[in-house]
Write a protein that binds this DNA or RNA. Structure first.
Length: 286
DNA sequence: TTACTGACCTGCACGC
DNA sequence: TGCGTGCAGGTCAGTA
C-alpha cells in the first residue's frame, strides 16, 4: 500500500524518466481515474497535451508533476495505483486507466490502478511554494526538513482523539498510513488508543524519531509491498515487508520481547501491537 | 468547530 | 466448480 516511502520511490523514478519531457497525447481509459479533475476526461487530456513536465515533487502521499505555467499534474496512488514508465510497445496492463505519450516516443507514462481509489487531476499551484491547491491543507511529512516538531507536539496535545487516529490525520502529519503508524508506535512502545492530550513532549520526540527511522528504512529498501499492488516506475516491488515488526505479524512473537503480536479492529481496519511493549493505557481513545 | 463513520472499489482467500 | 462473504485501506462527504 503506497505510503510516504513508496510514493517517494515512485517520485524518484519519475524524476529520472519524465522530467523535461513534452506530452504528445493523453488517453483516459477509465473516467473514474480523473474524477477529481472536475471539467472531465476530455478537458484533462486536452489541457495536458503539449505541456512540458518539470521535476516531480511530493507532499505526504501526494505527488505532482509541475507543468509549464501555474499548473501541475497531481497524482494520488490511493490503495493500488501505479505510475509506470513503459516502452510504447509493452502490452497494456489489465487496469490501465490513463496513458501519456511523449513527443520523443521512447517511453510512455501509464497510470494503472486496480481499485481506482487513486487518481490524476490538473490543478493550479499556489504562487509561493508551487504546491497544488488541493494539497495545500496537507501537513508536511516527518522527512521534510521544514517539518516543525514543536508545532506538531502542540497540535497533537490540542487534539482529543487516539494517537493512531492523529497519526493518520494528514492535516496534522502527512505520509503516515496504517502500516507505518503501527510500525512507528511499536518502535516508540506506545498504544494506538493512547489519548493524544496525555502525550508528553518527551514522548513525541521518540515517536517522531520512530516514524522517521521506519520510513527511512523502508525507503532504503524500495518500500513495502505485500503483493504486486505497490511497485516502482519500472514495475519492481520493494522489500521492506520482510522487515516489519508489527504490521501483519498477528500470532507471531514480538521481535523485542517474544510476546505474541495481536491484531485488533481499528477504524474498520486493523491495528497490530505487542501487548507487552505497547500495553493498554488506563484511558483509551479512538 | 471538531471528531467520527461509512462509502467508494476490486481482487483474493476462504468456507460452504 | 461456483457462489457468497470478509478483508485490504486512503480520502472525503456527511453526520453527530
Amino acid at each position: 500500500m503506497p505510503e510516504l516511502p513508496e510514493v517517494e520511490v515512485v517520485r524518484r523514478g519519475l524524476e529520472r524518466w519524465v522530467t523535461g519531457r513534452k506530452v504528445a497525447d493523453v488517453t483516459v481509459s477509465h473516467p473514474r481515474a480523473v474524477r477529481r479533475h472536475v471539467p472531465g476526461p476530455e478537458d484533462f487530456a486536452a489541457r495536458l497535451t503539449g505541456r512540458t513536465i518539470g521535476t516531480p515533487r511530493r507532499r505526504g502521499k501526494y505527488l505532482w508533476l509541475p507543468l509549464d505555467g501555474d499548473e501541475a499534474l497531481l497524482a494520488h496512488l490511493g490503495m493500488s495505483g501505479q505510475l509506470l514508465v513503459r516502452p510504447p510497445d509493452a502490452p497494456d496492463e489489465t487496469h490501465l486507466r490513463v496513458r501519456l505519450r511523449f513527443t520523443d516516443d521512447v517511453h510512455e507514462l501509464r497510470f494503472v490502478d486496480q481499485r481506482t481509489f487513486g487518481g490524476l487531476a490538473l490543478a493550479d499551484v499556489t504562487p509561493g511554494d508551487g504546491v497544488p491547491l488541493p494539497v495545500a491543507h496537507i501537513a508536511r511529512d516527518p522527512l521534510d526538513p521544514d517539518f516543525d516538531d514543536e508545532a506538531f507536539a502542540a497540535a497533537l496535545r490540542r487534539k482529543r482523539t487516539g494517537l493512531k487516529r492523529a497519526l493518520l490525520d494528514q492535516s496534522l502529519i502527512s505520509g503516515v498510513g496504517n502500516i507505518y503508524a503501527d510500525e512507528a508506535l511499536w518502535r516508540a512502545r506506545l498504544h494506538y488508543a493512547r489519548p493524544t492530550e496525555t502525550i508528553t513532549r518527551a514522548q513525541v520526540r521518540p515517536l517522531l524519531a520512530a516514524a522517521r527511522s521506519v520510513m527511512s528504512d523502508a525507503l532504503e529498501q524500495g518500500g513495502t509491498s505485500f503483493d504486486s499492488l505497490y511497485v516502482n516506475v519500472n514495475g519492481e516491488s520493494g522489500y521492506f515487508d520482510r522487515s516489519l515488526d508489527a504490521y501483519g505479524r498477528a500470532g507471531l512473537p514480538c521481535r523485542r520481547c517474544g510476546t505474541l503480536v495481536v491484531r485488533e479492529p481499528f477504524m474498520n481496519r486493523s491495528s497490530y501491537r505487542c501487548p507487552r511493549c505497547q500495553p493498554r493505557p488506563r484511558r483509551l481513545h479512538g
